[in-house]
Simulated scan of single mutants.
Amino acid sequence: MVVKAQLRAKLEVTQQQATQAHTQLQELQQQKSQIQNSACNLASVVSGKFSCLLQALELRRISAQRDIEAAQTQALAPALDEEQRLRGHLEALAQYGQRVQGLLEQVDDQTFLQDLQQLSEPPGPFGPLTPLQWDEDKQLGNLKELLSLLSGLLLEEGAPATVPARAPDLVPLKAPDPEAQVPSMVCPLRKKLWQNYRNLTFDPDSANRHFSLSCQDQRVTHCRRSQGPARLGSFELWQVQCTQSFRVGHHYWEVRTSDHSVTLGVAYSELTRQKLGTNTDNIGRESCSWGLCIQADSVLARHNGDSWRLPRVSARLLGIDLDLACGCLAFYSLEPQVQLLHTFHALFTRPLYPVFWLLEGRTLTLCHQPGAKLPPAPQEAASALH
């Protein structure tokens, strides 16, 4: 009996230790999640600042080029007058020389004397040239001043506050604050698009087994090694779709890519998930999907097996605008400025899921914007049709 009592006491101690270890594990996981979320949010803040800076730099580059061209025109204006005067002077000298040469070749003395009396005096010296004024240091000085002001965007007092170490409610990546200093020529369109902003998440059950989801299912990375057994209903193709779908209304979302070799699009739920042939993707290859493929040297818009080659653009930050009432699906490049890449026009008859393909080593992040509206619930979408 004494031995049993000792064993029970040891068991009780072991259970207490196990409970304590579970609690410590939960605390550790919570701290880990908080650090991951904080890092994602900090990356978003920095990315937003650099995005604004790149857009402002592009505008300043255009402005600086115009200033240099205007200064060049002003500096060369006197040169045009001097050049015209010099050409006139050279022409007068040439004419005088021809007349003198003609006199020297004259063999008749009487004619020579008559022509000599009519010969005017040679043109006088042209005189010193007016020095052209071109202050290269002044042009560079103005540019340096502009760059100094622009670099202040990263350190301005209006920058988002430092992310706290503990922030359980933080979202991984958000769109830049609408009030941030974005050049006015690109702000209005993007702000208008933000009116229908949707915060989306990837569907883990749809992800290819080589895909790793993180940041609360808002970031996906294509890994070389399998991340586990394939889930029921997941893509055999290198693809993943979102949990949310859209049946009615107007919706907009943004995606940040780590590099080219990615495809963004929307598809009906019947999009084939099995791999057929050698292709590792099928977005835009079937009638039930529409996609934009970002390649190293170009951009392709695809639907039902047809493709349209578009000019190469910066495609690190992309926007997708879906207006179901108008039957329009538009893709935008957002850096260094907002640029419409392609618009599909179709009669969408079933719920559409955002869907993505990415090459090995690539990462996609669904940007989140605080205060963005959630997609309508299925029952709300259904009732809106009646």
Rank of each mutant, 00 (worst) to 15 (best):
M1S: 06
V3C: 04
V3F: 07
A5Q: 03
R8N: 06
K10G: 01
E12L: 14
T14S: 07
Q17I: 00
A18K: 09
A18R: 09
T19R: 14
T19F: 05
A21W: 10
H22S: 11
H22R: 14
T23Y: 12
L25Y: 09
E27Q: 15
E27D: 14
Q29S: 08
N37T: 12
N37P: 00
V46I: 15
S47T: 14
F50P: 00
L57Y: 03
L57G: 02
E58V: 08
R61T: 10
R61D: 08
R61L: 13
A64V: 09
A64Q: 13
D67K: 11
I68A: 15
A70G: 00
L76Q: 08
A79T: 05
L80K: 11
D81T: 14
Q84N: 07
Q95A: 15
Y96Q: 12
Q98Y: 02
Q98M: 04
V100H: 06
V100W: 06
Q101R: 09
G102H: 05
L103Y: 03
E105C: 00
D108K: 08
D109H: 11
T111L: 15
Q114P: 01
Q114A: 14
Q114N: 07
L116F: 15
S120G: 14
L129C: 05
Q133W: 03
D135R: 08
K138M: 09
Q139G: 02
G141E: 11
N142D: 07
E145H: 12
L146T: 13
L147D: 05
L147C: 14
L147V: 10
L150V: 02
L153E: 06
L154D: 08
G158E: 15
A159W: 00
T162A: 15
V163F: 05
A167I: 11
D169H: 11
L170Q: 10
L170M: 09
V171I: 12
P172S: 12
L173G: 02
A175V: 03
D177Q: 09
P183C: 11
M185E: 07
L189C: 06
R190A: 03
R198E: 09
D203F: 03
D203R: 04
C215T: 01
Q216S: 15
Q218K: 13
T221A: 12
H222G: 00
C223N: 07
A230I: 00
R231S: 11
L232W: 01
E236D: 13
W238C: 08
Q241T: 02
S245I: 02
H250V: 12
W253P: 04
W253M: 06
D259Y: 01
H260P: 00
G265Y: 05
V266A: 01
A267G: 04
Y268Q: 04
S269Q: 12
Q274E: 09
G277C: 08
N279E: 10
D281M: 13
D281T: 14
I283F: 07
I283K: 07
S287M: 13
S287N: 12
C288F: 02
G291W: 03
C293G: 02
A296I: 01
S298N: 13
S298F: 04
L300E: 12
R302C: 14
H303W: 03
D306Q: 13
G319I: 10
L324N: 06
A325I: 03
Q337V: 09
Q337R: 11
V338E: 04
R350H: 12
L352K: 04
P354M: 15
L359G: 05
L359D: 15
L359Y: 12
G361L: 08
R362Q: 15
P370Y: 08
A372R: 11
A372L: 12
A377L: 15
P378I: 05
P378H: 04
S383C: 13
A384C: 10
